[in-house]
Design a protein around this nucleic acid. Structure first.
Length: 111
DNA sequence: GGTGTGACAATGG
DNA sequence: GCCATTGCCACAC
């Protein structure tokens, strides 16, 4: 169809790339912004294929609803995700983003 | 064209 | 309040 409609997968990567530094988002928020809401699982799956996108996707800014770094294992090495978050001034302890609620970036609200 | 999956979320017990 | 289970929707094989 339209070159604009590349699929949910590409849309997720686009929104994820729009996440400002120092902020974090959730799979459900992104999924909901895309209009699926219940396909939060798809968001993580899209990031799983983010390597095929050819561009770097700050997936480390995307965590689950609990602020837990669920996908840290998919970064290649566990701890890399936390390291990246700390690099953005985000405190991460026990694989969980501190003040996650405060750093939470909602595309539906910010956009 | 159908099946399986997947880095979640919400609900129930 | 915590643990277990279901639902869900889109993509890859």
């Amino acid at each position: 169809m339209k070159s604009d409609d590349k699929g949910f997968f590409d849309n997720v990567l686009r929104v994820t790339c729009l996440i400002p530094e120092g902020r974090v988002s959730t799979y459900g928020a992104i999924a909901r912004y895309l209009g699926s809401g219940r396909s939060a699982r798809m968001v993580g799956w899209a990031l799983n294929n983010c390597h095929s996108s050819g561009e770097f996707i700050p997936a480390h800014r995307v965590v689950n609803r609990n602020g837990l770094l669920t996908g840290k294992h998919h970064f290649g090495t566990p701890g890399a995700m936390q390291q990246l978050l700390e690099n953005e001034n985000i405190q991460v302890i026990d694989d969980t983003v501190l003040d996650f609620k405060r750093l939470f970036w909602d595309p539906c609200t910010e956009l």
